[in-house]
Design a protein around this nucleic acid. Structure first.
Length: 944
RNA sequence: GCGGGGGUUGCCGAGUCAGGAAAAGGCGCUAGAUUGAGGGUCUAGUCCCGUAGGGGUCCGAGGGUUCAAAUCCCUCCCCCCGCACCA
């Protein structure tokens, strides 16, 4: 096969599209379609994951364009946030791992890479690369609207957005816990960690037990994950080592040294008073602030002073640790030393939860400890025992009467309520702690939980806001549809989000310039900015023009044009401003936002929330689609570790159309695709074959092929009919964004039909080639453009997409062709077993045809088959009967009883050729063969 | 744990909503044709059995409904993703 230079073809068409401005839409009479893909974050090159999301978007854009829509498909670059800064620092440091990954996987030449030591240079380099990659793959993007999120004009836009949100009451102040490195004095992200990537921040409930000491109330802040067990506390545990007394806000707390250290990072005011030996407290009593009961303080080794406050309340009925520790203490010399024996003897576990199993209340912790044979508080099995018991009680447990007002509540429901109640009553607090430790920063320092004070939040938990988002979701189209449920859940789950940062690239909060707007919060309504971007890039709209009143007018229609333009220089005339406003109203809302599924729980939610907050309902997004990831030879890709396949490399090595077709065909919806080199190469062969095939059959067979339909043979009609079915299948698939299904039918299935057509001696393939090229153009636009120009001068990319034409569906032709195929296959099957030179063929007896006719008349498969199955003759061959009846009914009235004799006679040579035997009609055939015949399935008899 | 998705032939995956020949299509593999060889291309086969177009098995496991179940109902097992303040 001739080697085809895909890249050469592709470059030709790309530059022509560019030159002719083919994909630069302006408002018109046509209905519009505004499709957006999240702009890429530029801390590396575009990779196979982007390739998938963007190519789906481009295929849809091209499809919609050919369907008659005025399509806007824009793109920008996202650079806000910290990773680019982090990358610049790593490059500065010449971090070996980074250098390796970026030169090997991101394909950045080493000498260039080393120069990228500032965020600005990184942005400049990767945006240039990204632009080139997207052009090389042939996306139909309107490049006049490109921008970067650090542009001054963009920042103006973001400032406007945040003023707006603040005005609406959706930006509020609060504080929240973050993972923090005391050495670097910065919050730490996952990739900055040496240990503990999986650690999450959990909130312990602190319950303020207390005692009188030195004439002062001293708080023993017991930390627990199960506040409800406060009703079953029998004593307090301290490790027999040094603790500290500290002033915490207005109170005096006794806590471990570690806890004191941690508290200094919270929003509390803490001050060390003195060290205090825990030993001095044993045998003293504390008050349970909830129940008022007096309880003793005991020593315990299992207490981890590095976990929360280091002060532990003991609930021996429900906590295996506590139960074992008490039993052990009773026998320990410590009891002697601190003279605790008498008090210990009086300790009785207090049961407060029922799991509804036992008749007589038992002590759950005692049971499980004894079952597992645990004797010591240092036994590692205690951890397991605790988990098992906790799980059981959490899911099945109900609080007993002893818990007073909480009696009867589910354990699973109690935590938040109790925590809130305790805090309200001034006897509770929250202590943040990591779920697993240690958590260590790259610099080697142990991380802490820091509570960031006076932080700005987006108030997503606001029920009114949430309610409107949920309501709108119901009106939206979500693809695939089961993601609607996912969105619903995520919207419900969404809490307030901190939207301000100390570090990173981006826009400052306009009213509080200490803070930067967090990077997911600045990319929620920027699709509107694409409208402005065209004017900005033309030099007409400048940052200094972008006042609040101007943007109010353009984006919200508020304030009138006079107000919008007052004080602006004359280069921004009213006409232009009016035009921008009209553009905005023409293009908005976003008709489809298509994205990777990783953005569901964050960006796509914010996208909805912000649109609903800021714009009127007619400008809210119409649809969201999500797609899955791409792996490489089965391995997960990673930007920062590799492996990675860049878009640029994929196109360079395989060509744009091969890359596009592969990625579109690799998988559907949210399921993940796998990039396999071997498969890609084999697909490349398919495309070469396709190209050759069209070239051979397209060019010379001029218009005369299409002249008279009367000249069409049954086979030609079959081809046209099959093509119509494929048009329908492809169109249906594209309407649902099912590119895999679309490619499967438009390319692979059509190829196989075409092959059959040619093998059968078909001569007029050009009957369908025009439309076939159009059909394939959204997927492989360059090849289609190249081939289209063999006979046309305009762009196939701008043609009208083929419409399903039912009148060309020819069930008779299809049935006849199917008949021939099956006959050949039957004969071949027989020839596997019998050596023969001739095959006698006899069509089914007339009475069988009658039954079939009857079934068609009934029209309903279920009914018909019920009738027919009453007949013993058919019951015996039920499968066969149901088979052909089904086939008949499927086509309803269209089904034709075939003139089988005629079909066989007309195709007798072809069948002989295919099977290698001679066929004879109307010969006598033995009865046992004859009875196998059905309408559509003649009896066969092989003779040598 | 909660929420969402899933388990089909050597692999990737259709088919499940609306029960009616399971396995479309792609990849891989085998054979034949073509080609000086290789490659490429075309054709056929690819769960098991079968010297007549057939029979059997089968859709994570086990039950049930039905003339008929991958599909509907019940029970159970397993896998993937998210659970955030990060792009």
């Amino acid at each position: 096969m001739v080697d085809i230079d895909f890249r050469e073809i592709e470059r030709r068409w790309q530059s022509l599209w560019e030159k002719e401005g083919v994909f630069q839409p302006e408002p018109s009479e046509k209905p519009k379609f505004f499709i957006t893909i999240p702009y890429p974050y530029l801390n590396g090159n575009l990779h196979a994951g982007h390739t998938r999301t963007f190519t789906i978007g481009d295929a849809v854009a091209r499809y919609k364009r050919m369907k008659g829509y005025n399509v806007l498909f824009p793109m920008g670059f996202h650079v806000t946030g910290t990773p680019i800064i982090g990358l610049a620092e790593l490059i500065q440091k010449k971090d070996p791992k980074t250098i390796e990954v970026y030169s090997n996987f991101h394909d950045v030449p080493k000498e260039i890479l080393l120069t990228l030591d500032t965020p600005e240079k990184i942005v400049e380099y990767f945006s240039k690369e990204a632009l080139e990659a997207m052009r090389n793959i042939g996306y139909s993007i309107d490049w006049r609207r490109i921008f970067t999120t650090t542009d001054e004009t963009y920042q103006k836009f973001i400032e406007w957005q945040f003023y707006r949100l603040k005005k609406l009451g959706y930006v509020v102040k609060g504080s929240h816990p973050v993972r923090y490195c005391p050495h670097d004095r910065n919050p730490v992200e996952d990739h900055d960690l040496l240990h503990g990537e999986n650690a999450t921040v959990i909130d312990f409930t602190v319950i303020k037990f207390y005692y009188e000491g030195d004439g002062e109330k001293i708080i023993l802040p017991c930390a627990t994950l199960r506040p409800e067990t406060v009703f079953g506390v029998t004593n307090i545990w301290l490790k027999p080592i040094k603790y500290v007394l500290a002033k915490v806000d207005d109170e005096t707390w006794l806590i471990s040294k570690e806890a004191y250290e941690k508290l200094t990072y919270t929003d509390k005011k803490v001050e060390l008073i003195k060290e205090i030996d825990a030993e001095t407290l044993f045998r003293k009593y504390a008050i349970n602030p909830v129940t008022g009961s007096k309880i003793p303080i005991f020593p315990a080794d299992f207490v981890d002073t590095d976990n929360a406050t280091g002060v532990v309340m003991s609930v021996p009925a429900h906590a295996p640790y506590d139960y074992v520790a008490i039993e052990e203490l009773k026998k320990s010399e410590l009891a002697e030393r601190y003279n605790l024996k008498d008090i210990l003897a009086k300790i009785e576990p207090i049961v407060l939860i029922s799991v509804g199993e036992e008749e007589i209340p038992e002590i759950p912790a005692k049971n499980i400890v004894e079952e597992m044979g645990i004797k010591s508080q240092n036994d590692p099995a205690l951890e397991r025992a605790t988990k098992i018991l906790y799980k059981k009680e959490f899911h099945k447990g109900v609080l007993l009467d002893i818990t007073g007002e909480y009696s009867g509540m589910q354990v699973s429901q109690i935590k938040d309520r109790l925590q809130r109640d305790l805090i309200e009553r001034g006897i509770g607090d929250i202590f943040y702690e990591f779920s697993e430790r240690p958590v260590v920063c790259r610099c080697g320092t142990k991380c802490v939980v820091k509570v960031v004070k006076d932080q700005w939040f987006l108030n997503y938990s606001n029920p009114e806001w949430k309610g409107r988002v949920l309501e709108h979701l119901e009106r939206m189209r979500i693809i695939p549809d089961y993601y609607k449920e996912e969105f619903r859940n995520k919207i419900e789950w969404l809490k307030d989000k901190a939207c301000a940062r100390r570090k990173g690239l981006g826009t400052k909060i306009p009213w509080d310039r200490e803070w930067l707007i967090e990077s997911l919060s600045d990319s929620t309504i920027y699709m509107a900015y694409y409208v402005l971007a065209k004017y900005i890039n033309e030099g007409k709209l400048k940052a200094e023009h972008m006042t609040e009143s101007l943007l109010n007018y353009i984006l919200l229609g508020e304030g009138g044009i006079e107000k919008a333009c007052s004080g602006l220089d004359e280069r921004l005339d009213k006409e232009t401003v009016k035009k921008i406003r009209e553009d905005f109203l023409y293009w908005y809302p976003v008709d489809l936002r298509s994205s990777g599924k990783d953005l569901v729980a964050n960006h796509l939610l914010f996208f909805l929330f912000h649109h609903i907050a800021i714009f009127p309902p007619n400008l809210w997004p119409r649809a969201i689609a999500v797609n899955g990831y791409v792996s490489l030879e089965g391995k997960k890709m990673s930007k920062s570790k590799g492996p990675l396949l860049t878009m640029k490399r994929a196109v360079l090595e395989n060509g744009a159309d091969v890359t596009r077709l592969y990625i579109l065909y690799a998988s559907e919806y949210d399921s993940d695709a796998d990039w396999r080199r071997k498969d890609v190469e084999s697909l490349s062969q398919h495309l070469r074959r396709f190209y050759e095939l069209i070239k051979e059959n397209y060019k010379d067979n001029g218009e005369k092929d299409l002249e008279k339909d009367s000249k069409l043979t049954l086979l030609d009609r079959w081809l046209l009919s099959r093509f119509q079915r494929i048009v329908k299948e492809t169109t249906d698939a594209m309407e649902g964004l099912q590119t895999r299904r679309a490619v499967n039918s438009a390319f692979f299935e059509m190829m196989s039909d075409v092959r059959w057509y040619l093998r059968r001696g078909g001569k007029k393939l050009s009957l369908i080639i025009d439309d076939w090229l159009k059909l394939l153009s959204p997927f492989i636009p360059h090849l289609c453009e190249e081939l289209w120009h063999l006979r046309h001068d305009d762009f196939v990319s701008l043609q009208k997409y083929p419409e399903y034409d039912k009148t060309k569906v020819d069930t008779e032709a299809e049935a006849a062709e199917e008949y021939v195929k099956e006959l050949i296959s039957d004969i071949k099957e027989i020839l596997k077993f019998v050596e023969a030179k001739k095959v006698y063929v006899a069509i089914a007896e007339p009475w069988k045809v009658e039954v079939l006719n009857l079934a068609i008349k009934v029209g309903n498969f279920k009914e018909a088959i019920k009738e027919i199955m009453k007949d013993d003759r058919f019951r015996k061959i039920g499968k066969e009967v149901s088979n052909f009846v089904k086939k008949a009914i499927k086509d309803k009235g269209d089904f034709k009883i075939l003139n089988e004799e005629k079909i066989i006679q007309e195709n007798i040579d072809f069948i002989s050729k295919e099977t290698g035997v001679e066929l004879e009609l109307n010969q006598e055939i033995p009865e046992e063969r004859k009875k196998l015949a059905m309408p559509g399935k003649p009896a066969l008899y092989a003779v040598s």
